[in-house]
């Protein structure tokens, strides 16, 4: 099941074919790459050059002013920390909740299992704008507005977590049952089996879940904007839109600098980890 095996059909294709492939890929990649690239290079431009027409990539007078401005205008370091810790907490909770539920839905027989699974799947389908108004009311009643609780709880239990539960269930269904039976003969209970046997085997699925969950928390925009009003509590996507002057005018270069700082680390991590990422998805039960 290695990549190389699959690649076999075209491996010895003529050179022309290879050139065509590269050409197609480079052309296709342009709209994916140029905006990000432009964002990064423009963050080093003075304001007047950002609007230059026609637009250019590289500045004639590069400056780091926007980067220092990003930190002095708002508690940006704090906001960065908020985003990181919320995403990590959400990811940890989701991995626990989804691996438990996914295991039970896959392996344990109990009355109403299929019905309850459908109920859980509904969580994946409800658009957030249906629930955001009622949720705001609920969190307000609970005194949790302007805290990080809504961002953690909703993400860790609603849609992203349901997707995770689905992925975990698919994985555990595909896992050979014999392993568990052997463990049971050794006297392990359900929890012991889940903890000692299944979780270690589920590493690929768990890492897929971790990556997807981290990204959905990291990119959350609507919810923080609704629940948070204090700048020191903001998360990054929300903070990006707050780089405005006293009249609401956009501080474009500062925004671009801040956006660059939020994007580059994640891109670097993905670049390093992408093989594991794709392969963990491949072995996660999402396979064909």
């Amino acid at each position: 099941m290695r990549t190389e095996t699959v690649a076999a059909p075209n491996r010895f294709g003529p050179i022309a074919r290879r050139v065509a492939l590269y050409a197609a890929l480079i052309l296709l990649a342009a709209p994916f790459v140029i905006p990000t690239l432009w964002m990064i290079t423009s963050s080093f431009k003075p304001l007047s050059e950002i609007f230059a027409s026609p637009p250019s990539f590289f500045s004639e007078n590069p400056t780091l002013a926007a980067y220092s401005e990003a930190f002095t205008f708002q508690p940006f370091a704090r906001q960065y920390l908020n985003s990181v810790y919320i995403a990590l907490v959400v990811t940890a909770i989701t991995m626990l909740v989804s691996s438990l539920a996914g295991y039970a839905f896959a392996r344990i027989r109990f009355p109403g299992r299929n019905l309850l699974f459908v109920v859980v799947l509904v969580g994946l389908l409800v658009p957030s704008e249906v629930t955001i108004v009622p949720l705001f009311q609920m969190f307000k009643q609970a005194g949790m507005v302007n805290t990080h609780w809504p961002l953690i709880l909703v993400t860790a239990f609603a849609a992203p977590c349901v997707l995770a539960t689905f992925i975990m269930r698919q994985f555990f269904i595909a896992l050979p049952v014999e392993l568990e039976e052997a463990a049971r003969l050794d006297g392990l209970g359900r929890f012991g089996i889940w903890r000692r046997i299944c979780l270690p085997l589920a590493k690929p699925a768990l890492s897929a879940v971790a990556i997807l969950t981290f990204l959905s928390s990291w990119n959350l925009y609507l919810e923080p904007t609704v629940y948070l009003t204090s700048p020191e509590l903001f998360t990054l996507p929300q903070a990006l839109t707050r780089f405005t002057d006293a009249y609401g005018g956009e501080m474009w270069n500062t925004q671009l600098a801040a956006a660059t700082m939020t994007v580059v680390p994640v891109l670097v991590v993905f670049l390093i980890a992408q093989r594991q990422f794709v392969e963990s998805l491949a072995h996660s039960g999402l396979k064909g």
Partner: peptide, 19 residues
Amino acid sequence: PTTAKKLVSALALGTLATA
């Protein structure tokens, strides 16, 4: 992006009326 912000932040706006 001002409209985006207006609309998105406007979310919070109606949400409290019952209270």
